[in-house]
Design a protein around this nucleic acid. Structure first.
Lengths: 291, 291
DNA sequence: CCGTATTACGCTAGCCGTAATGATG
DNA sequence: CATCATTACGGCTAGCGTAATACGG
C-alpha cells in the first residue's frame, strides 16, 4: 500500500531536489528517504527517478507523480482541517450580540447550561453582520434590539425570538457638575461634554455619535483602566441598570437617568427556528430574566 | 501521521457499518480495525464514533471525516492511475494507420528501432480519428494517404510528413473466370461479383463499397481462414504488391492489376513537428522504403 | 448463544538510525 | 576529500493475529 509518508517524502523531494535536504527538512535519516522512494517505485511498479551513482533526479513520470502527491496531501490536510473545525464548532457555543450588557448576562447562563463547552461571545456594531452569522451557523444565537419575523417559502418562521433583558442608560456626573441637580437628562443635553467611554460598546457607539455629535469621546479599551479613570476624574461617563450587578461603585458621583428611547432598549435572543427545541433550556433561563 | 490504511478503513467502515464486516472485506482481523480507528481518532484529536459496549457508529463528525476519506482515496487512486498510465505510454510506441499494409512494414521496423518497447498499432477507417489521436498524443505516429501541411499561429508547421510505401491492388481471379484474360481491370468491372475480403482493411472498405456497390462482400475476420477460403474457392479476392512479402502463394489463380487511382496509393508517415528529431532514426528507415 | 467491540499479549514485519561502501566532481 | 546515494546490519516501534473478556438482542 502507498502510505502517506511516501507521498509526503516524494513531494518534499520534488521541492528540495536531494535526499539529504529532504532528510534534513523532515528530520529523518538519508537512508530512510532512499528506501521509502524505492518502496514507492516498487508499490507503483514504475520508475520515478533517474539514478546515477550519487545523484537521484525525478524523471518525467516522477514529476507527474509528485504533482499528484501534492493533490493527495492537500486533500488529507483539508480532511484534517474540516474534521477539527467541525469538532471545535461542536464543542463551542458561539453567539453574537449588538451590545455588551446582554453578554454579561448570557455568558454565565450558557456556561452553566453547556458545561464543558467553550462559550464564544462576539460583539458587533450592526444587525446585518449578526444575522448573516446566524444564517451561516457561525452563531448559534444572536442578541438584537428587536425580533426577527422572516418566513420561508412555505410560510414557516425562519427564526425564533424571545425578549431578553431591558437596558436603561444613565449618565454618571460629579456632584459639582452643572447638570448634576437634574432629575433626568436627554442625550442632547450632553453636547460639548468630554465623555469617557469604552471603545467596544456595539450599537451604542453609533447612537452616541449620532445623538451627541459635538461631544469629545475619550475612548478606553481596557475596562478596569476605564473604571479607574472614571473614579479618579471629574469626567462624565455612562452607567447602565445592568452594570450594577458587576458591582461598580459610583463613589461620590451621581447617576442621572437618560430618557431618550435610544438608550432605553429591549434586547431579544434569536436563534434559527429549527434550533428552538434544542435550545429550550436556554430560552427558559432567558425567559426568567425578561423583567 | 494519518496513514493511508486508516483512511481506507474509515471509508470502508462508513460503507459496511460494522468492524467485523470491514475486517472481512479488507482481509484483516477485527481487533486491527478497532485499533486503527482508535488511532485515527487519536491522531485527529477528535472523537469520530458513538460507542456502546458492542456497537460502534460514526457520529456526525465521523461521517464528515469518512466523506473526506473518500476524497483522499480517490486522489490517491487517481495518482496511481495517472502514473501507471504515463509509464505505459512511455514504454509503448503507439501509431495508427489508415490501411493494414503499412502496418506490415512499419511494425517490424519499430520493433527493431525501439527494442523492449511495446508497439501498439491501430487500424482506423478515417483520417480524422487518426489526426485527433496524433494531436492528443495517443498516437506518436500516423499513416495517411497524404501529408499534413497545417501551420501554427506563428507560421511553423505543426506536423512532419514523409512518403512511405506505395500500394497497388490487384484482383485475384481463377483462370477460368470471365475476366481472367484481361491485362488490367477497373473496380467497376467487378460489379455483381462475390468478393472475399478481410473485414479490417481501413479506408479500403469505404473505397470498395463506393466503387463496387452492387458486389457481394464475403467478410472474414481471421486472416489465415481467409487465405484458406481464397485457396479453396473460385471466389475473387484482392492482393497487393505489399502482401507479396508475406509469402502468400497465388496457387492456380491469376492476379490482374487494378488501374483506378483509388487503389494505387502512396502512404505517408506523419508525426508532430516537435518529434521530428526524436524520430530521426525512424524516418531514415522509412525513407529507405519509399520506392 | 451468536454477533459485535474491546482488551491483553506475544510475534514479527518493516521502518529507522548508524556505519560502511561507492561514486562523482 | 567533500558530498551524495545506496547497501548492510542491528534495534525497536507499532501494527498484526489469537485468545480472552464483555455486552446486547
Amino acid at each position: 500500500m502507498i502510505e502517506t509518508y511516501m507521498i509526503e517524502q516524494l513531494a518534499a523531494l520534488q521541492e528540495h531536489k536531494t535526499l539529504s535536504k529532504v532528510a534534513e527538512v523532515l528530520h529523518i535519516s538519508q537512508p530512510a528517504i532512499s528506501r521509502s522512494m524505492q518502496k514507492l517505485e516498487d508499490e507503483l511498479g514504475v520508475k520515478l527517478f533517474d539514478r546515477t551513482k550519487n545523484r537521484i533526479v525525478l524523471n518525467a513520470i516522477g514529476e507527474l507523480a509528485a504533482r499528484h502527491a501534492l493533490v493527495v496531501l492537500s486533500a488529507q490536510n483539508e480532511m484534517i482541517r474540516a474534521v477539527r473545525d467541525a469538532d471545535r464548532r461542536m464543542h463551542t457555543f458561539s453567539y453574537g450580540s449588538i451590545a455588551p450588557a446582554p453578554m454579561w448576562e448570557l455568558t454565565p447562563i450558557l456556561s452553566q447550561l453547556y458545561m464543558g463547552m467553550t462559550i464564544a461571545a462576539d460583539l458587533q456594531d450592526t444587525d446585518d453582520v449578526l444575522v448573516r452569522g446566524l444564517n451561516d451557523d457561525s452563531y448559534q444565537l444572536i442578541v438584537l434590539l428587536h425580533d426577527l419575523r422572516d418566513i420561508d417559502d412555505s410560510g414557516h418562521p425562519i427564526y425564533y425570538s424571545k425578549p431578553f433583558v431591558h437596558e436603561k442608560l444613565s449618565i454618571l456626573l460629579p456632584k459639582t457638575h452643572r447638570l448634576a441637580q437634574r432629575k433626568s437628562l436627554k442625550l442632547k443635553d450632553l453636547a460639548g461634554e468630554k465623555l469617557l467611554i469604552h471603545d467596544k460598546i456595539g450599537f451604542w457607539y453609533g447612537v452616541c455619535k449620532r445623538k451627541i455629535p459635538d461631544a469629545t469621546y475619550l475612548e478606553q479599551s481596557d475596562l478596569s483602566t476605564l473604571t479607574e479613570i472614571v473614579n479618579a476624574s471629574d469626567l462624565p461617563s455612562f452607567v447602565t441598570n445592568l452594570s450594577e450587578r458587576l458591582g461598580i461603585a459610583f463613589g461620590d458621583k451621581i447617576a442621572i437617568p437618560l430618557v431618550d428611547e435610544e438608550v432605553n432598549v429591549q434586547f431579544w435572543c434569536i436563534c434559527k427556528a429549527c434550533k428552538k427545541r434544542e435550545f429550550a433550556a436556554l430560552f427558559n433561563a432567558v425567559e426568567r430574566m425578561q423583567d
